[in-house]
């Protein structure tokens, strides 16, 4: 079987890649995608912990992570569509007022 530190390390690297994308990208589509990458890495960490203890709780937590990702993505995408209707570029720097520009 696979030793548990391997998938745990993989989850770590994937989470950091997501964090890197979140910090470095300005396009809100990629910001949302980076959040998804980080959530998915957290899911892999749960599965890895479930492997370590031979327990189904890891997979149950993965289901809840998917649930959270679905709800978060639905709201994020609607906000993206609203923002796109107001400004041509999906730049996070242009979306800092939360109201119409004066």
């Amino acid at each position: 079987m696979i030793p548990w530190p391997m998938p745990t390390g993989l989850a770590l690297v994937l989470f950091l890649l997501g964090l890197l994308g979140l910090l470095a990208r300005k396009n809100l589509v990629f910001v949302l995608m980076s959040i998804e990458i980080m959530l998915n890495a957290a899911g892999l960490l749960f599965i890895s912990a479930g492997l370590r203890w031979g327990d189904p709780d890891g997979q149950i937590m993965l289901i809840f992570v998917f649930n959270l990702a679905g709800a978060e993505l639905a709201l994020g995408l609607v906000l993206l569509l609203r923002l796109r209707a107001r400004q041509p570029a999906l730049d996070s720097d242009d979306a800092n007022l939360l109201r119409d520009a004066p």
Partner: peptide, 29 residues
């Protein structure tokens, strides 16, 4: 890793449903 149910969920729910929703919205943009 010994989690076949999670593997099926990953492909069907995450890659199949959530990401395709994401893709459709990006194409609407």
């Amino acid at each position: 890793m010994g989690a076949p149910f999670a593997a099926a969920l990953e492909v069907i729910v995450y890659a199949g449903a959530i990401m395709v929703l994401f893709l459709f919205v990006i194409m609407m943009l």
